[in-house]
Amino acid sequence: MKALLIPCLLLMGMIPALAQDDRMRMQQMEDELKPLAYTIMNDDDFVTRFRADSAFIRGLVRALRTPHSFRYRFDSLSSISQLYAPDSSFRIFTWQLQMEDMNHFRQKGAIQMRTADGSLKLIPLFDASKYTEAPADSVRNAQNWIGAVYYNIIQTKYNNRNYYTLFGYDENDARSTKKWLEVLTFDVNGNPVFGGRYFNYREDDLKPRQPAFRFCVEFKKKANAKLNYDPELDMIVLAHLVSEEGDNKKKHTLVPYGTFEGFKWLGGRWVHQPDIKEANPDARVNPDQTRRKQ
């Protein structure tokens, strides 16, 4: 699997470059997007955040309509997550909007596909989290996506098919945070398919009930429980959690215990490994970088 983690920059050399005039226009549009992205995450007034979010979406789409925009990285938009697939076949933008009650969040997102002629193929993602009480129970599409702000993406293969595992977080509410593992594939028409029977583990009171089509851990606010891929171990590493009140059903009381479990890609599934030793700390995007400053 390690051989599949190809740096995007190597593959980006195969994509036609932006024309100089187009690059300059995109830089100007990025300058216009930057204060909007900041306002979405930091303004105290919901109406102001909402209007900035709407303006940001319109501006981002306008910028992405530039021929060969796939190659352009919006590096100054630090509060907007943008991840390229390891094979550079697509990139995914995600961010979050704090709602009016200040205790809940709505995730926003879009997938930009790489196209041979440089034209825009953009797939908007619509967060349906608030409409379900069982977000792990089904395969989803772009119209009923379980929202998350993604901070890592890895690529695996099985039977000559590509699988993209997304690592995301959701601020959830005032007491707890969620982290998600989501396997993304594409159907024969190029449409994104979120989830599937990719997680093999024994049920316990900390994990989603089987059958689980995506994996979630929920824990105490700001506890920052680890969930990420470790390239040295070639595994997903997950912190063991323990309740501060001795009640695992109270997700807002769960904190890292200091030991780790994880998942290994075997036979087209992520197979649970109950006890592992951590090799590296999180080395990719820090989820805190894309959170609203409190």
Rank of each mutant, 00 (worst) to 15 (best):
D205M: 07
G246E: 02
D275Y: 14
N144L: 01
N144S: 02
E232R: 14
F50W: 11
L166V: 05
F260V: 00
V217P: 00
E133M: 05
T39H: 00
R23K: 08
R62C: 05
H272V: 01
D127A: 00
A63F: 05
A223E: 00
M102C: 13
T94Q: 10
T66W: 02
A223N: 03
R269I: 07
K220L: 04
Y257S: 12
G267I: 02
L4C: 12
R214V: 04
R62T: 11
K207W: 07
P208G: 06
Y151L: 01
E244P: 09
Y198R: 06
T156M: 13
L9H: 15
K264S: 10
N191M: 12
G13I: 06
W180G: 10
S69E: 08
D101M: 00
I15M: 07
F46S: 00
E278Q: 15
F74T: 04
P208R: 08
G190V: 01
G196D: 03
H252Q: 14
Q82R: 14
Y163R: 04
K221A: 06
F215P: 01
L241K: 03
Q107D: 08
E232W: 04
A148W: 08
V188N: 14
T177W: 04
V285M: 12
N103L: 02
A63C: 09
Y72S: 08
A212H: 12
Q27N: 11
V271Q: 04
L241P: 07
C216E: 10
N103G: 13
I57F: 15
T94K: 06
A17R: 12
H104R: 14
E30V: 09
A55S: 09
S176E: 02
L64G: 09
W270E: 03
A55E: 05
P274W: 08
W95A: 07
Q20M: 12
A110R: 12
F199Y: 13
A3I: 02
R65V: 05
I123N: 00
R214I: 11
A239I: 01
F46M: 03
R62Q: 07
G246V: 07
R71Y: 10
M99P: 00
N172Q: 13
P124M: 06
V217F: 10
F167Q: 07
N162W: 05
K221Q: 07
A174P: 08
D170A: 12
L36P: 10
Q28W: 06
L36R: 09
D101F: 01
L64S: 11
K108M: 11
Q98V: 00
N228S: 10
R202F: 12
W145L: 07
P281V: 09
F194S: 04
W265A: 09
A128M: 07
C216Q: 14
F105V: 00
T94E: 06
A212V: 06
D127T: 02
R291P: 02
R58A: 03
A52I: 00
N141T: 13
E244R: 15
R25L: 01
A110I: 09
P135I: 03
M1Q: 11
P274T: 08
Q107L: 13
R161A: 14
L5Y: 13
M26R: 13
